[in-house]
Design a protein around this nucleic acid. Structure first.
Length: 309
DNA sequence: AATCATATCAACCGCCAGCTT
DNA sequence: AAAGCTGGCGGTTGATATGAT
């Protein structure tokens, strides 16, 4: 039970699609929209199973698809996201407009998987660990040896974390470059072998990221970062889809009575979580305009602290 | 020019979750 | 509650293209 019918039953076609089949599929989707793939074959006489139709549409016929020529920026994002998410190709593809999960999976397997991890990481702008660290330190001594230099942890500006965070909140450093570098570093060093992120030391994992579960990250990635903004008081909210955030984030939200002091609506993130949250967002949204402008929210109050004040 | 090796990528397969009956 | 159906996902395959000898 529960299994979809096999495509090879009842003489359904397999293999490469013909131009005529493509046309039937495109015409049907134009008329009826996506979905209902099984109805498609029944109603059009196309001798393809629903799954095959869906795959052909999603990976090849969709009008907004970009094919080939993965740019260096896209490659870097793929590497970052794969570091963060593993082989969750559909989620990765969701962050690369016009790219399909199949294409990214193929690209990874043919181009990136073959490269040694070190040569992949060197393409990231984030810091490189030195010396090379064994993936699983077991003893306290080994853990101590793996710790990053204090200056490294605090980022390029060599600030005390609290100072860097406060600067970010106050708008003195823009989109929290220190937190960003730190987060990238954490993602580079994180161990996801058990399905969750873990860090080499508490110093590397601010409260925001401790026990950060991959599934939570996946849900956050499903949010639209272009909608994120920070109001003039320095509180982060998305203005549109606050309910989209996972319950996990609740612990990072201000209590309602506190939030009310600042705005009547929106998502309010605790002062001590703002920097890390911005860092996570800026990993995937490097376009400052989207931060500064609210990405289409046309809310004049949406601006990164310091960007317009 | 012929053959073999390797790379690429479209498509298939099996599993699963969620929905409907 | 159980069975059946569908869509979605990641892993894998195999036909084709390209490069090397």
């Amino acid at each position: 039970m529960g299994r979809s019918p096999r495509c090879d039953k009842d003489g359904l076609n397999k293999g490469a699609w013909t131009a005529a089949e493509d046309k039937i599929l495109m015409d049907y989707v134009k008329l009826n929209g996506e979905g209902k793939w099984s109805r498609l074959s029944r109603e059009t006489g196309l001798r393809r199973c629903g799954k095959s139709c869906r795959l052909r549409w999603m990976n090849y016929l969709r009008p907004d698809i970009k094919r080939g020529n993965i740019s260096p920026d896209e490659e870097e994002l793929i590497i970052r996201l794969h570091k963060l998410l593993g082989n969750r190709w559909s989620l990765i593809a969701g962050r690369l407009p016009g790219r399909t999960d199949n294409e990214i999976k193929n690209y990874w397997n043919t181009n990136l998987a073959k490269k040694p991890e070190a040569s992949r990481s060197v393409q990231l702008h984030c810091l490189q660990r030195e010396p090379t660290v064994q993936p699983h330190a077991t003893s306290q001594r080994e853990l101590e040896q793996e710790r990053l230099p204090e200056s490294d942890i605090r980022g390029v500006a060599n600030l005390e974390p609290q100072v860097a965070q406060q600067n970010a909140i106050n708008g003195e450093l823009g989109p929290s470059p220190d937190g960003n570098a730190l987060l990238k570093r954490m993602l580079s060093d994180s161990d996801m072998s058990d399905g969750s992120l873990s860090f080499n030391s508490e110093e590397e994992s601010p409260d925001f990221m401790i026990d950060f579960n991959v599934d939570d990250i996946c849900q956050i990635l499903d949010s639209d970062f272009s909608k994120l903004g920070t109001d003039q008081n320095g509180y982060v909210h998305d203005g549109e889809r606050e309910t989209k955030y996972p319950s996990y984030l609740n612990q990072h939200l201000m209590p309602p009575e506190e939030a009310e002091k600042h705005l009547n609506d929106g998502l309010h993130i605790r002062d001590d979580s703002v920097s890390a949250f911005q860092s996570l967002a800026s990993l995937f949204e490097s376009d400052d305009e989207k931060w500064a402008g609210g990405g289409g929210t046309n809310d004049a109050n949406f601006a990164l602290p310091g960007k317009n004040s």
